[in-house]
Design a protein around this nucleic acid. Structure first.
Length: 585
RNA sequence: GGGUAAAUAGCUCAGUUGGAUAGAGCAACUACCUUCUAAGUAGUCGGUCGGGGGUUCGAGUCCCUCUUUACCCA
């Protein structure tokens, strides 16, 4: 219903000019959806603000605007209410026309972006030799959803997995494995990721306790960076091992990613430092190459540098991230770069972006943003940390989800005396379980921390994936029962909106485009979740109160169109969340 | 100590450029399946939006301040 807002805005502007004079052309009408359905569908709030300027009562101003306003093509006569709100109620005939157009459009009325952009979404980014945990779930799911929305809007999206596959920890790990488990460094599949994680922990322990080991590990890092063949082979094996396990998770979650890990930027690191030196940003401090930025201080209140080359000549995360920024702009030609990581890294990215801007790597029209998300907290409200062993492995969470939904479905099938195959139960449980986990994450405002809870994540009532999938299933039930082929309802099916619940549902369906725009702009998937939840609620209310198959034509077809549009909107919206639909459940 | 977020119903959370009587879900209680799947619907209960100032026609939303919590800081 973007077009409705556009139409009302134009008409309001004309009326404002006619009522108040040319000086007021372009006044923001403060037009939006009504705060409460009893006031109609849209409201314009500018009369109160104009009151002081004009020295008139706001209601009087509203009245003179309404007197000059022509919106009869779309709305009933606007009403003035309260201190001076102008309320609009859309005509059912107009809604019917809009719905017909939506039914004929494979994109359900959502336009493709006028200026498609090259967008990079950097997300997921697990570390080699570490298990993916619930924190990676957030990045992965949010990134996938954001990428899907941008792709749907017609942008050219590059989904990058900035895997942690480089750094000092590899020297430590390779050295330890040479001693403790040499086969792992020469044979593929000698260990699984679980073993690797355990060995990593032991290596870390050794590293922390044994100074000699520490020194040797550093030498191993140098060998890795110097591309010593044995060390590189060992490193490749370790990466492959982790990669295979990550891929299992990505496949289950149906998430596509292009891996471009930290090691990819290795050849560009020295250029970054040279470039910063050339622009005069580099300062040597205690032997390290640093960039000092305004607004950052350390514990003692001294200026805090961003170190790009350590005293020993090595590089760090900041250097890699700077190289990535540079590469993504200069080589990938990105117009918009989106980093999806936890909020704890906000300072880091702010610094990296600021340095990149000072170095003039980021053109005016390129947007580079950190899209932070809150932490997943343990039971006691503290960050879940790998070290304390509290981490919930992603794999375990997904297995648990499927297990619970499988048990639930089995008891449901037994209680309803349904005959279902084992395949049906296994498949449904898998889809519903994974969807529930995804939705639990996406439906929350990404910026807030949340306390992890199996029960909440695997709930099946209320604002959950199963609730929405169930609404979809109900429509498919109507289709089966009535032998309805929704594709054959006819291009010009008459749409009749007499009942309150039909009107409410129709109006909500037409908000899809607005919501997708918002998600594209604010990168907040929970807005889309909220929309789909409300759509399901409105559909369920309609479904509960009005029958579809058992009413006379032409009402029957009209209602079938409403059902069909609801199902299509749910399917599209859930797809943008990375959630499939089921025909039965 | 500095920085960044946050504090809304018993619990978990929404709350769109500041708009009219602050909303969901869960939990608790009640009613509705011979009817298109009850994974549903309707209802009851539940709030000094952390405290205090300020800005304005109007503040959960913006500003200041205090308290508490989380995260980041060679």
């Amino acid at each position: 219903m973007n077009s409705t807002i556009a139409y009302l805005t134009t008409q309001l502007d004309r009326a404002i000019v006619a009522a108040l004079g040319d000086d007021y052309a372009g006044t923001d009408p403060l037009l939006g959806l009504s705060s409460n359905p009893k006031f109609g569908d849209y409201q314009a709030n500018m009369a109160m603000g104009l009151s002081k300027k004009l020295g008139q009562q706001p209601r009087q101003i509203a009245q003179s605007i309404v007197d000059n306003l022509d919106v009869a093509a779309v709305c009933e006569v606007p009403q003035i209410a309260g201190p001076g709100f102008i309320n609009f109620t859309v005509k059912p005939s107009y809604l019917a026309t809009q719905l017909q157009a939506m039914q004929l459009d494979s994109r359900l009325g959502v336009p493709v972006a006028e200026k498609p952009q090259r967008v990079i979404v950097d997300f997921s980014s697990p570390n080699i030799a570490k298990e993916m945990h619930v924190g990676h779930l957030r990045s992965t799911i949010l990134g996938d959803c954001i990428a899907r929305v941008l792709e749907f809007r017609g942008h050219d999206v590059l989904r990058l997995n900035h895997v942690g596959d480089w750094g000092t920890q590899f020297g430590m790990l390779i050295l330890y494995l040479r001693e403790a488990y040499p086969e792992a460094l020469t044979t593929a599949d000698a260990l699984d990721l679980g073993d690797l994680v355990l060995l990593y922990k032991k290596a870390k322990q050794r590293f922390d306790e044994d100074a000699e080991f520490q020194a040797a590990a550093r030498k191993e890092v140098v060998k890795l960076q110097a591309k010593d063949p044995d060390t590189i082979e060992a490193w490749n094996l370790l990466c492959d091992q982790s990669r295979r396990e990550f891929q299992v998770i990505y496949d289950r979650l149906n998430v596509q990613l292009t891996e471009r890990g930290e090691s990819f930027y290795n050849p560009y690191l020295s250029t970054v430092v040279d470039d910063l030196r050339a622009t005069g940003l580099l300062v040597e401090s205690d032997g390290a190459q640093c960039v000092f930025l305004d607004g950052y201080t350390n514990r003692d209140g001294d200026p805090l540098p961003l170190i790009v080359q350590k005293t020993d000549g090595g590089y760090n995360y900041a250097t890699t991230d700077l190289a990535a920024v540079r590469y993504r702009i200069q080589t990938d030609r990105a117009d918009r770069i989106i980093y999806i990581t936890d909020a704890g890294q906000s300072d880091h990215f702010a610094q990296v972006f600021q340095v990149a801007k000072l170095a003039k790597w980021i053109p005016e029209d390129v947007e580079i943003i950190h899209v932070p998300f809150g932490l997943v907290l343990g039971e006691h409200g503290k960050k879940i940390k790998t070290r304390s062993g509290e981490t919930i492995k992603l794999k375990d969470l997904l297995d648990e989800a499927i297990e619970r939904f499988s048990n639930d479905l089995k008891s449901r099938v037994a209680a309803e005396e349904r005959q279902e195959t084992d395949d049906f139960i296994a498949n449904s449980a898998e889809i519903v379980g994974l969807s529930a986990v995804k939705y639990a994450d996406l439906s929350q405002n990404r910026t807030s921390n949340y306390v992890f809870s199996y029960d909440k994540m695997l709930a099946l009532q209320g604002n959950t994936a199963p609730y929405m999938m169930y609404a979809y299933v109900r429509v498919q039930g109507i289709s089966r029962k009535g032998g309805i082929d929704f594709d054959r309802l006819g291009d010009r099916a008459q749409i009749i909106l007499n009942e309150e619940l039909e009107l409410t549902l129709a109006k909500h369906l037409l908000q899809l485009g607005t919501v997708i725009n918002e998600v594209e702009r604010d990168l907040l998937p929970n807005r889309l979740c909220q929309y789909l939840f409300e759509l399901s609620q409105k559909f369920n209310q309609f479904y509960d109160k009005h029958s579809v198959l058992q009413v006379e034509e032409p009402l029957r077809t009209s209602r079938l169109v409403l059902c069909d549009l609801t199902a299509k909107t749910l399917r599209l919206g859930l797809d943008l969340l990375g959630i499939p639909v089921l025909e039965r459940m």
